[in-house]
Design a protein around this nucleic acid. Structure first.
Lengths: 140, 140
DNA sequence: AGAAAATATGCAACATAGTTGCAAATTTTG
DNA sequence: CAAAATTTGCAACTATGTTGCATATTTTCT
């Protein structure tokens, strides 16, 4: 029971002043171990303990997103994909790369683009999201 | 019947070597007149002539997208939004700006970001999509 | 610790966006 | 104009979420 991932997840939940429930901890652990954004379905499938009701998963993700621990990443798919808000600056999350052949999406935490500038009066940009498409090394 | 929009739409369909059907022409006309990406529902609502079945709208949009006349811009509110593929370079479409207060999304045809460069071997980027969030002049 | 208050969970039923198979209608080709 | 190719509409279906509400869990208070 001294799983470091577990401890970290619990700590994050406490910090955010949320009830420290099994669902929140379990879902954060899954997201911490993930290589890219995951859908509700994928998350459910990877939760270790007992299985969580899908409604619970959705509501948990929502609360974690509201608390700023998790982000909804934008995807081509019809399903929402979530990821830790780690590595995000206030204004920009890392870009996501989707391989058009194998369909896998990865987080590009090692690149960041300059923030766009809108040459028109009055716009306030608070966030910028970038999606890249192409071929990954395995498919190229 | 010498509606210039109509003529242009017909021309585009012919150029793409698609059957010149009422649905394709009508939908292209709606998209040509649109200020931003539209959902299937919005498109249906704006088609003049008789109303089109939603399946037809989806299938028409799909064929237009396949022919490269139209793009799926992004998902919002769980629905795909489509727009003309106008003003897109081969590698990058214009960014989209969504106001987090009024919810309106606009096309930023006057900005373009430099293409991202992935500092890892083997990735081939073919397309880059940018989404901006913030406040529009009316809401700021 | 134990009770009360606050919050989260699960179930069943519902909502929405999009898809599929197939017969009928439209468009193009010869 | 007839035949071939393609599109359309209908009904039924799938996938992805959402809502209301009773029950269970977590936190707070004493």
């Amino acid at each position: 029971m001294t799983d470091p991932l577990d401890d970290k997840a619990r700590h994050m939940v406490k910090e955010a002043r949320l009830y420290c429930t099994e669902a929140r901890v379990a879902i954060l652990k899954v997201l911490m171990a993930a290589a890219g954004p995951l859908s509700q379905d994928q998350i459910s499938g990877q939760v270790e303990s007992r299985s969580l009701n899908k409604v619970t998963v959705y509501r948990t993700l929502e609360s974690l997103a509201e608390a700023g621990l998790v982000h909804r990443a934008f995807m081509e798919d019809r399903a929402w994909h979530f990821e830790l808000a780690d590595h995000c600056t206030e204004h920009q999350c890392h870009p996501h790369f989707t391989c058009t052949r194998c369909g896998v999406t990865q987080c590009m935490t090692d690149i960041s683009l300059p923030m766009a500038v809108i040459p028109r009066k009055g716009f306030v940009i608070s966030r910028q999201q970038v999606r890249l498409e192409g071929l990954c090394p395995a498919c190229a």
